[in-house]
Amino acid sequence: MNTKINLVAFYTILRKEILRVLRIWVQTIVPPAITMTLYFVIFGNLIGSRIGNMEGYTYMQFIAPGIIMMSVITNSYGNVVSSFFGAKYGGYLDEMLVAPVANATIILGHIAGGIIRGLLVGSMVTIIALSFTDLKLTYPLVTFSIVFLSSMVFALAGFINALFAKKFDDIAIIPTFIITPLTYLGGVFYSINLLPEFWQNISLFNPILYMVNAFRYGVLGSSDIDITYAYMVVGIFIIILFSISLLLLKKGTGIRE
């Protein structure tokens, strides 16, 4: 593998992805900002004021990290799946496939684009959250590392979804039927300590629970789970999803007959 070719190719893919996000900002940046503002207004402000404190924090403070993480996850995923599937559908993925770009570079370039969009939207949602409540970074390193790694997990998942997708409907199935339910059940709006023991145990199989709680720990200093597990879960997912992506690209699944 030629390092120089792949470094330039990585920069090219990343640059293209960033320009794409900025070019279609009305689709990529504005909708999550509006949606998350509505979450803060409805759940945090209107309903939250009647709920009272949760785990020692106001309800708005409690849900803010989860909502930020939710925006990062969905946007990282959405960026990669739509961009890569768009390239596949439009035929311009061939531009990369005919070139001597390593499969790992194609994956890394696209997931870096997804991470940047995720972090961009996450930063914007954080600014919105700060207009509703006070948030302090208790553990900045935990906060930044877990948000970065979680974003990577979902960007990789989006990449795999795009490889398998044959039509535009296929890129909406995973977010609708898997990611959204797991996010809502992943402790964004509640502490799993409120659940009966059986459902608490079931919740522990939800990877998003670990990401949300680790992020909440970084911001508030409070978590339902040990954050060491969170890093382990996220790390394992990254290794598995990256390996699957590499294998699928090598086989040409969804891109080469």
């Binding site: 030629n2 893919i13 640059r15 293209k16 439009g90 311009y92 061939d94 070139a99 001597p100």
Partner: peptide, 21 residues
Amino acid sequence: VNFNTFDTPINIVVNQAGYYG
């Protein structure tokens, strides 16, 4: 035709060069 029709000719050509290092 298999380029991104929403992009500009200069970007299409220069990006392709990038894929070749």
